[in-house]
């Protein structure tokens, strides 16, 4: 499967990956000028954490082999495709219980900020050849890698 690889040492917290993610999932268009940063409905599905030494850390869905979000999902909204490896989220099935947010050990997931109805979850840009976060990363911190 493809997995977005993270090399934390190269991260400089430029947030281009977060912006890329926001752009790609913006319903109003996929260009940088379509993005209204004051509109809170534009949210990234990834984020940068800062550890105790202020060292930036990209926190991006791993599409885990043993996905806690899926084990805990009671509506069937989270599924793992055993061929592509992707853990997909179907917002139409989701019952907004947010057990997945509680279960993801890496703190990747959150509810949407506007309605708190859906979960913000990486979908690998829906088959896009290079995920937008990777494409936008200027340092090489994020790379698309092949596993297995």
């Amino acid at each position: 499967m493809n997995r977005i690889k993270v090399n934390r040492d190269l991260c400089m917290a430029c947030l281009n990956c977060v912006l890329g993610c926001m752009i790609e999932h913006n319903e109003k268009g996929k260009g940088i000028y379509d993005l209204d940063l004051e509109d809170i409905s534009n949210e990234g599905r990834n984020h940068i954490g800062l550890d105790k030494n202020k060292c930036p850390t990209p926190i991006i869905c791993r599409h885990c082999e043993e996905p806690e979000c899926m084990y805990t999902c009671m509506s069937g909204a989270m599924t793992k495709d055993r061929d592509t490896g992707m853990v997909a989220y179907d917002e139409k099935k989701c019952s907004s219980c947010f057990m997945c947010v509680m279960a993801c050990p890496y703190g990747v997931l959150k509810a949407d900020a506007v309605d708190r109805k859906v979960v913000l979850k990486c979908n690998m840009c829906n088959g896009r050849e290079i995920p937008r976060c990777v494409e936008n990363c200027p340092t090489g911190c994020l790379e698309l890698g092949e596993e297995e």
Binding site: R3, I4, K5, V6, R8, G49, L50, D51, K52, C55, P56, T57, I59, R62, C64, E65, P105, Y106, G107, G145, E147, E148
Partner: peptide, 20 residues
């Protein structure tokens, strides 16, 4: 750190297969 600010970055490590 403020206890409410502790997040995964404080425990970060990457496995060989790219998982956290």
């Amino acid at each position: 750190k403020d206890i409410f600010d502790i997040d995964y970055s404080d425990f970060f490590s990457i496995k060989e297969n790219g998982e956290y």
